[in-house]
Computed example of a mutant assay.
Amino acid sequence: MYRLVLLAFVSSILSLQPSLAALPPAVTVTNIRRVFHNGEHNAFTDLVRFKGQLYLCFRSCPDGHMVFNTASTIILRSADEGATWQQVHRFSVKDRDTRDPHFLVFNEQLFVYTGTWWSGPGKIEPKEYDMNKMLGFAVSSADGTTWSEPAMLEGTFGHYIWRAATLGGKAYLCGRRKPGFDITAKGEGEKVQSLMLESDDGLVWKKRAYFTETAGDETAFLFENDGSLLAIGRHGGGKEAFLIRSKPPFIEWDRKSLDRAVGGPLVAKWGKHVLVGGRHTTKEKGAKTSLCWLVGEQLHEFAELPSGGDNSYPGFIELSPTKGLISWYSSHEKDEAGKTITAIYMAELNLSH
């Protein structure tokens, strides 16, 4: 009898091993530093590795966060795993605000995509922001040094484009738009659709599928080895975030609510674990850039980065199986005159088991 009980106990412990092994590791955050500030509003970061070097991109604008034709996208490069950075390119688009730049390595080219608001030759008021006039643009490079002129992305007019990913020789891009390109309301409302756009060359896009019919917003794609899709989507009303899954041919979509809103979401694979980052807002602390592990259908926060006010939109790159680099922007610091600055920050993430 006692032998049977002991065997049952041992069996139950062994059965727990896979789940215990799947638990994410502890993380320490080190080497926190400001990597860029030029006196302008600097925001919306992304990171990528391309041909052995690291690249960082973000928007910079002397007039601030809102829509201005003075905005541009800055691209920095590091040859020493993020210790130092040098600017390799800066571009803008006439009469448009280049916002939310993101990288994509595709067809041996490094692309930087930006969703642009039309602003015209001068400042426009928020009531005049028109989502139907949005248009995606991209610059690309084969070596990270010589860059193309900004190219209009066919099939993106009236779409606010965001993060992209690749699968099986095709590129996929998050784009959102008003249903029927409704012209009665300005800006973005809760009645916004999120679409998966598809491209063979990274420049010409077509609709592949809808994945959020209402309250669509910024969505980060992550393709698994089997071709299935895992995505983290921001709720258009700012109330929550969605865990979204689908499999080729991306006809059926499973969407579940997460326990928090995630502004400017990031999703990345680090070894066997899934990293999720973005803005988490609470009454006690306000808006903070938060990092979590996704375990099953639950987010487990492991770090709150130094941040406040206008912040978030992280980028991530794995440096080794136990070390990663995270970028984000924030307005929690002031300059020597006591004026709030909005700058680009970076830190190292270190795994311990």
Rank of each mutant, 00 (worst) to 15 (best):
T145A: 12
L110D: 00
S228L: 02
D226S: 05
E198H: 00
G189I: 03
D217K: 01
F221D: 00
L325D: 08
S140T: 14
G237W: 13
H235N: 12
E336Y: 11
E125N: 13
F137C: 11
G158I: 12
V10R: 01
S119V: 07
H273M: 04
G168F: 03
A261E: 13
T166D: 01
W162A: 13
G236C: 08
F103P: 06
P248K: 09
L153W: 05
D100H: 06
A303G: 04
A220M: 01
V88M: 03
T116K: 06
E297N: 15
A303T: 00
A343H: 04
R33E: 15
S19K: 08
V139D: 04
D97T: 00
K323P: 00
R99F: 13
G278Y: 08
T342V: 13
P121D: 14
P248H: 11
V192C: 07
E188R: 01
S352C: 12
R34E: 11
T116L: 12
S148R: 06
L20T: 09
D95Y: 12
S320A: 11
S72F: 15
R49V: 05
Q53W: 11
S330L: 03
F242W: 14
T45F: 06
N69M: 08
V267H: 00
T340L: 10
G136C: 07
V88P: 00
L110Q: 02
M346F: 13
G136K: 08
E318G: 03
W270V: 00
F106M: 05
K133F: 09
P25Q: 12
V5D: 09
M66W: 10
P179Q: 07
V192Q: 07
N38P: 04
L305G: 03
D200A: 15
V295N: 02
R245L: 05
L135C: 09
Y345K: 07
L195D: 03
D130K: 04
F250M: 03
E125G: 00
G236A: 10
R208S: 07
A164M: 08
R255I: 09
N42P: 04
L351V: 09
L76E: 01
L319A: 02
S228G: 08
E108N: 10
H89F: 14
N132C: 12
F181I: 08
S92M: 09
T146W: 12
P25K: 10
E301D: 06
W117Y: 13
D63T: 07
E213H: 13
D130A: 06
E284W: 11
V35P: 02
Y55D: 01
Y210L: 08
W205E: 00
V112I: 15
Y160W: 15
R208Q: 09
F223Y: 10
V112K: 02
N42V: 05
A171L: 02
A287L: 09
G158P: 10
T45H: 05
A79W: 13
T70Q: 10
M66K: 07
M196F: 10
D130P: 04
H280G: 05
D182T: 12
L6E: 10
A347V: 13
S19W: 14
R77Q: 15
Y113W: 02
R33M: 11
G237P: 07
V274K: 05
V105T: 02
T145K: 10
D200N: 15
G39V: 05
T156M: 03
A22Y: 08
